[in-house]
Design a binder for these strands. Structure first.
Length: 197
DNA sequence: GCAATGATTTACT
DNA sequence: GTAAATCATTGCC
């Protein structure tokens, strides 16, 4: 069952990030279905420096984040990696949840083919934001696509017990100064597919 | 118009 | 542990 817009459009992006753990991200790319359970997320908001839309700075790239929640924000970083975010909150409020890692479920062979790693590289297949987008076939053509459509969506997955949820600071945004210390990263404690413990 | 840089990954010293 | 790969987007000239 797909999550509907009401789930994404709530005003607390941090809560949405936490509740996305255990949900299942599914893509239907050119008829090839791949999916994975979300095991790691990070929250981003225009109120802090880690976000592209810091202080409401609206650009051609991050305009998607200003739209109502429930759509995908995909962008290229470091010239080689696609990252996928889930836009949350209401129109005009730039907040999003970065999907950092998933556990492969459906279409694992397809993912292996896309990743060009060895046939038994299951562990490293989706344990990182750049890696999971490659595995699921997500690229910038999916930017702005609704997560309630037929190409990419998120389904209700397992319910994660709060004691299996760990919180920490976000990764890779040291340039954000004090805001880099916000405890806005959530992951499933001890899960093998989390990018970093 | 042009130079600087990043929500990363991978390989090498 | 450190560095290179690599390019769209950004900000300044």
């Amino acid at each position: 069952m797909k999550l509907d817009e009401a789930f994404y459009q709530r005003t607390d992006v941090v809560r949405v990030a936490r509740e996305l753990l255990g949900k299942v991200l599914v893509t239907n790319n050119c008829g090839q279905i791949t999916s994975g359970m979300i095991v790691e997320t990070e929250a981003y908001s225009w109120k802090e420096r880690g976000c592209h839309a810091y202080q409401g700075r609206k650009t051609a790239r991050n305009a998607v984040m200003f739209q109502p929640g429930g759509i995908a924000y995909v962008y290229l970083c470091y010239g080689m990696h696609n990252m996928v975010n889930v836009v949350t909150n209401k129109e005009g409020i730039a907040e999003a949840v970065l999907i950092r890692a998933v556990e492969p479920l459906a279409g694992i062979d397809i993912m292996k083919g896309r990743r060009k790693t060895g046939p038994d590289a299951l562990l490293g297949l989706t344990s990182g934001p750049g890696k999971l987008t490659a595995a699921l076939g997500i690229d910038r053509s999916l930017n702005g696509k609704p997560l309630t459509g037929e190409v990419i969506w998120i389904e209700r997955g397992e319910k994660i017990s709060p004691r299996h949820i760990a919180v920490s600071t976000r990764i890779g945004i040291a340039y954000a100064g004090e805001d880099a210390k916000l405890p806005w990263r959530f992951y499933i404690r001890g899960h093998a597919c989390v990018s970093k413990l």
